[in-house]
């Protein structure tokens, strides 16, 4: 029964990773840009959750969404837009720079606040850390929230992409931006829509992560984003669905391996200290066998940028 519980927890972790992957993948679709600063959007949203202290949960979640969307749009406006026609590597370096800037900005504020530890506690929806007991299973509510939020967010996004005009325009722009523009699709509008939605998803991920960790610090979102990027690349970044599946698989594997392995072991492969190495090794093998990604369709060509 213990294994079933581990499985459910792993699905929860996978769901959060999937959300992050979609946030990154949407922007990649329209900009051909891997945003390494995505984790810091999650961090910004988490700080927004910590900020008001005694606000009602709904209000602080609203603030977190607002903060992540605004931060995401500002990032696009001041960094991505001027670099839109630049080399992909220039854009990549720019997102690294933004990630460091935001992380260090978060660090710096502790100096001004003269606070001892590098962290703020978050009480939003903390009741969801309690577990429900079903037979011999003890599942925390936040796990259900993670799975539910993942399903609702991804389902909502799927509706936007397939049922609305802006969604159709975003899909067309991801496939062939130049032709989309020839049909009147406004480049700035679709990019801002993708960037804004990715901000919303960052906030949703921040809420779920903050409930579990009950705190935020300058590294919040960093580790998850790195793992997600690994999953996205392994899954195949050229399609949103495969990138999402890749990230889900990584989240699922990390959680499962993490709970099934002891924290310290006599031999390397029985300790989760080595888990990142094991994951990276698996990814290298995947990319050697299927360079386009685990879930990518065969014979798929990469698309040009704007």
């Amino acid at each position: 029964m213990n294994h079933v519980q581990a499985l459910i927890d792993a699905i929860g972790e996978g769901a959060v990773f999937a959300l992050i992957a979609v946030g990154i993948g949407l922007v990649f679709g329209v900009l051909r840009l891997i945003n390494f600063a995505y984790g810091q959007l999650i961090m910004v949203a988490a700080y927004a959750l910590a900020f008001p202290g005694n606000w009602p949960d709904a209000a602080s979640i609203g603030l977190a969404v607002l903060a992540a969307v605004v931060a995401s749009l500002v990032m696009e406006r001041i960094a991505f837009r001027p670099l839109r026609t630049a080399d992909p590597s220039t854009m990549l370096v720019a997102t690294f720079a933004i990630a460091y800037l935001l992380q260090n900005g978060a660090l710096l504020q502790y100096t001004y606040r003269q606070q001892g530890g590098l962290g703020d506690s978050i009480g939003t929806l903390s009741g969801l850390n309690q577990a429900v007991t079903i037979g011999s299973l003890h599942i925390r509510w936040v796990t259900f929230l993670a799975i539910g939020a993942g399903l609702v967010s991804l389902g909502g996004l799927a509706l936007i992409l397939t049922r609305t005009s802006i969604g159709l325009q975003m899909r067309a722009a991801s496939m062939d931006f130049r032709t989309a523009r020839l049909l009147g699709v406004k480049a700035d509008t679709v990019i801002m829509a993708a960037v804004a939605i990715s901000g919303v998803l960052a906030a949703v991920a921040a809420v779920v992560l903050s409930i579990s960790s009950t705190s935020v610090n300058p590294t919040t979102g960093f580790q998850e984003t790195i793992f997600v990027l690994v999953g996205v690349v392994a899954g195949g970044i050229d399609r949103l669905v495969s990138a999402t599946l890749g990230a889900f698989a990584i989240g699922f594997a990390i959680e499962l391996v993490g709970t099934e392995l002891p924290n310290s072991g006599a031999t390397p492969f029985t300790s989760n200290v080595y888990m990142p190495s094991v994951i990276y090794l698996a990814v290298i093998v995947v990319l050697l066998l299927r360079p386009a990604g685990l879930f990518a369709r065969r014979g798929q060509r990469t698309v040009e940028r704007v």
Binding site: S165, L168, Q169, A172, A180, L183, G184, V185
Partner: peptide, 11 residues
């Protein structure tokens, strides 16, 4: 149909 709907964008 989606291709045609994209044509409407410039309208």
């Amino acid at each position: 149909e989606e291709n045609l709907r994209l044509g409407l964008v410039a309208r």
